[in-house]
Design a binder for these strands. Sequence first.
DNA 1: TTTTTATTGACCATGCTGGTCGAAGTATGA
DNA 2: TCATACTTCGACCAGCATGGTCAATAAAAA
Lengths: 207, 207
Amino acid sequence: MVKAFETLDESKKKRIIDAAIHEFSEHPYEQASTNRIVKEARIGKGMLFHYFETKQALYEYLVDRALRVMEELYVHYIDVSEPDFIERMKGSAKLKMDVYRLHPDLFNFIGQVVLEKESKIPKALAERLEKMQQDGMTSLFKGVDLSKFRDDLPADEVMKLISWSIEGYGNELVAKLDGQTFVELEVDSYWDDFYAFLDVLKRIYYK
Amino acid sequence: MVKAFETLDESKKKRIIDAAIHEFSEHPYEQASTNRIVKEARIGKGMLFHYFETKQALYEYLVDRALRVMEELYVHYIDVSEPDFIERMKGSAKLKMDVYRLHPDLFNFIGQVVLEKESKIPKALAERLEKMQQDGMTSLFKGVDLSKFRDDLPADEVMKLISWSIEGYGNELVAKLDGQTFVELEVDSYWDDFYAFLDVLKRIYYK
DNA sequence: TTTTTATTGACCATGCTGGTCGAAGTATGA
DNA sequence: TCATACTTCGACCAGCATGGTCAATAAAAA
């Protein structure tokens, strides 16, 4: 039962969750292996199935947990009051980065859950996931001060163009950094470059 | 031996290649199943291993073939003489679409090959693949008439921004069309929209 | 008819799967 | 000290899918 799991050593609990999230973030549900999970978590196979009745139960526990973490973060940290679109995107990028630093595997895990063709999660969870995606979308685009945009283009087109540009910038950065272990000091300079890039976007898309 | 395979009925040969490419485009090497391949190709298991000694040999044959097709297409159809960057991107998008229409699974297959972590292909093939990616990149960016660009931004930044915008546009379109079977007639209107979008980009990034 | 070639799919050893369970270890309490 | 309860382990299970083989057959050629 999950009860037994909840009253566990905090560190062992973390080890198990991390191992499981890691496994499920790298393989789709069917391919994810409970054997690898217990190995990485350094526990016996029996324990995992003592805490969680089935692989499926473990998976649902993880999805619920991941959603909880994300909901928490989004509610607390997203600044919907910022009317400047690009500034809002900046905040969102920072949030994303923070989450990534705090929970490296969480993003990929949720990504896998979304990708899953035949959804392995019960309807209630699926709906929470959907809602989160929806909310994330609207919180980025709603209540923006459109008057700042150049007015030879529809505002929604401008916002799309800005998002795509930022996305492209991010992808390029990730590709460039891939494999590198980046020193703390350098990080700041990456942010500075990013801010400069955002200023370029302002010059292009703002009045 | 491959010899036997080459002298095969053209239609059966195609059935086998298509089935194999399909399988390898949907699963990474290890997960791809020879059983599914022979089933889809409607041949006995024995035949596959009569034509190709091992799964690995089949895989290499397919990679070689895919590279050949792509090299052919790129050489014949890319217009490196077009100095207008956005027009060149337009051509590239059209080419991509044509290839996709002609060989739907080929793109995904090559994608899988590139993704493969521990490369399953011998060095010679890997180098050809690398070269193709390199060439594709340079053929897009080399010899462009930079004087058309607005001059308050470095030319390479402009080109990146344009590429990212087009990529974003494409992704959105694909997401929107996902699952729909699109009628021939509608396709033209999608292209029209795309051309209009390219004009917007010209307005933004050209003098 | 005989010989050669093309083709099949049942079969094999192997390896991994989610899940079980008896046993051994540890803590608690009398 | 002994007995009871709770953890923890990993060998083990049946099931399934894998890449690859090969004896048997069908088709074609001689």
